Simulated assay, not measured.
Amino acid sequence: MLRVLIADDQDLIRGGFAMILDDQPGMTVVGEAATGAEAVRATLGLRPDVVLMDVRMPEMDGIEATRRICSGTDAKVLVLTMFDLDEYVYDALRAGASGFLLKDMRRGELVEAVRVVAAGESLLAPTVTRRLIADLVRRPAHGVAPRLAGRLAELTEREVQALRLVARGLSNAEIAATLVVSDHTVKTHVSRVLGKLGLRDRVQAVVFAYESGLVLPGDGLEA
Rank of each mutant, 00 (worst) to 15 (best):
L2R: 00
R3S: 12
V4Y: 03
V4C: 08
L5T: 02
I6H: 04
A7I: 08
D8T: 00
L12W: 01
L12S: 07
I20M: 10
L21I: 05
L21P: 03
D23V: 03
D23W: 09
D23P: 01
Q24N: 01
G26Q: 02
G26V: 01
M27V: 08
M27L: 13
V29R: 03
V29G: 06
V30I: 10
V30L: 05
E32Y: 05
E32F: 01
A34Y: 01
A34F: 06
T35D: 08
A37L: 10
E38Q: 15
R41F: 01
A42H: 10
T43F: 10
L46W: 09
R47I: 10
P48V: 03
V51N: 06
P58G: 12
P58S: 12
E59T: 13
E59Q: 13
E59V: 14
M60L: 14
G62E: 14
G62S: 12
E64P: 03
T66S: 12
R67Y: 12
R68G: 02
I69L: 02
C70V: 11
C70M: 15
S71W: 01
S71I: 00
D74E: 11
D74W: 01
V77H: 06
L80E: 06
L80C: 11
F83W: 08
F83L: 13
L85E: 14
E87I: 04
Y88G: 15
Y88N: 15
Y90K: 15
A92N: 09
A92E: 12
A92R: 06
L93P: 00
A95N: 03
G96A: 09
G96P: 06
A97L: 07
S98I: 01
L101T: 04
M105D: 00
M105E: 04
M105R: 08
R106N: 11
E109H: 02
V111D: 08
A113R: 01
V117A: 10
G120K: 08
S122F: 09
L124G: 11
P126Y: 04
T127D: 11
T127Q: 11
V128N: 08
A134N: 15
A134Q: 08
D135V: 02
R138K: 15
P140W: 05
G143N: 12
V144E: 12
P146C: 11
P146I: 10
L148V: 00
G150F: 05
R151W: 04
L152K: 11
E154Y: 07
L155V: 11
E157G: 01
A162K: 00
L163A: 04
L163F: 02
R168C: 07
N172S: 11
E174A: 13
I175P: 10
A176N: 04
T178P: 00
T178R: 14
V180W: 04
K187C: 00
S191N: 14
R192S: 15
V193C: 14
L194C: 10
G195I: 05
L197Q: 12
R202Y: 09
R202F: 06
A205T: 08
A205H: 09
A205S: 11
V207W: 09
A209H: 03
A209P: 04
S212H: 07
V215K: 06
V215G: 05
L216Q: 15
P217M: 06
G218I: 10
D219R: 07
L221P: 03
E222V: 09
